[in-house]
C-alpha cells in the first residue's frame, strides 16, 4: 500500500444537523491534516464535535460541505462496497466498549478483517501470532471475548485494528471503560506501536492521560478547532 505523507486531510468540513426546528452546527469549516506516524488526541467537551469529526474522517458520516481525504482518496464521496472495502483496508477502529464479535475467538476476531481481505491462512496465522505477542496476549488465541478482562479485550481490539496494516487507527475513548492502571498499560502498547511501527493514531478522548501522552493535541469547541498543539 502506497503511503501518503499526509495520511489524512480534512478541508473546510462543516456538518449541520437538524433536530426538529433547531439546526445544530456540529462542525464549522474545520481544517485538519494528520501526517503519517502522528499520535493525535482530539479532545473537547461533550457536543464539541469530536465524534462528528471522527465519523466523517472514517466515512461513517458525510459532511454537509467540505471534504476529507484519507490516504489521498476522497472518503466522503465513497459509497456502498467501495466505502466498506476502503475502511477495511485503510482504517483501524478501536471502540470504547471493545466491541469484539462475541461468538468469535480472539484469533478469529483478529483474523476477521484479513479473511475479508482474502489473505491466505498461513499469512493470517503468522500475523495473528505476531500481533498477539505485541499486545501481550500470546496463548489466548482460542479464548472467547467473555473469557477475557476488559483490558485484555481492548488489547484484542487494538490487535484487530492493527493487524491489516491500516493507514490510520481511529480510537473512540479507548480507555473510557478501563481502570487507570489498565488504561495506562493499553496506552503504552499503542504508543510503543506508534513509535516502533510508525502507526498513525487519532483518538477522540476525555482522558487526560491520553491528552498528556499524545504527540499532538487538537481541542475542539462548538464545532471549531480552538487549539492545535504539537509536542515531542
Amino acid at each position: 500500500m502506497k503511503k501518503s505523507e499526509d495520511v489524512l486531510k480534512v478541508v473546510d468540513i462543516s456538518r449541520t444537523y437538524r433536530s426538529g426546528e433547531v439546526t445544530v452546527n456540529a462542525l464549522k469549516a474545520v481544517n485538519l491534516t494528520i501526517a503519517q506516524g502522528e499520535f493525535t488526541a482530539i479532545a473537547g467537551p461533550s457536543g464539541s464535535g469530536k465524534t462528528t469529526l471522527l465519523n466523517i474522517i472514517s466515512g461513517l458520516d458525510v459532511p454537509t460541505s467540505g471534504h476529507a481525504l484519507l490516504a489521498g482518496r476522497p472518503i466522503s464521496e465513497m459509497k456502498g462496497s467501495e466505502l466498506s472495502d476502503f475502511r477495511r483496508d485503510h482504517i483501524g477502529f478501536i471502540f470504547q466498549a471493545y466491541n469484539l464479535i462475541p461468538v468469535l475467538s480472539v484469533k478469529e476476531n483478529i483474523e476477521y478483517i484479513m479473511l475479508l481481505q482474502g489473505i491466505g491462512e498461513k499469512e493470517r496465522l503468522s500475523r495473528v501470532v505476531s500481533i498477539l505477542e505485541q499486545v501481550g496476549l500470546t496463548g489466548m488465541e482460542d479464548r472467547l471475548p467473555r473469557q477475557l478482562s476488559g483490558g485484555q479485550q481492548q488489547r484484542v481490539a487494538v490487535a484487530r485494528a492493527m493487524v491489516s496494516g491500516p493507514d490510520i487507527i481511529l480510537a473512540d475513548e479507548p480507555t473510557a471503560n478501563l481502570d487507570s492502571h489498565t488504561g495506562a498499560s493499553l496506552l503504552n502498547i499503542m504508543r510503543e506501536l506508534n513509535e516502533t511501527k510508525g502507526m498513525t493514531f487519532v483518538f477522540s478522548t476525555h482522558d487526560t492521560m491520553i491528552m498528556e501522552r499524545a504527540k499532538r493535541l487538537v481541542l475542539l469547541k462548538d464545532g471549531e478547532i480552538v487549539k492545535d498543539e504539537k509536542r515531542q
Binding site: 472514517s58 461513517l60 456502498g80 462496497s81 466498506s84 472495502d85 475502511r87 477495511r88 483496508d89 477502529f93 471502540f95 466491541n99 464479535i101 462475541p102 476477521y112 478483517i113 475479508l116 484487530r160
Partner: peptide, 16 residues
C-alpha cells in the same frame, strides 16, 4: 445492532 454496526464499520460489505 451495535455489533452489526461494528461489522459494517470495520469493512464488512452490505452484501456480506
Amino acid at each position: 445492532m451495535f455489533e452489526f454496526g461494528v461489522l459494517r464499520a470495520i469493512g464488512t460489505r452490505p452484501l456480506s
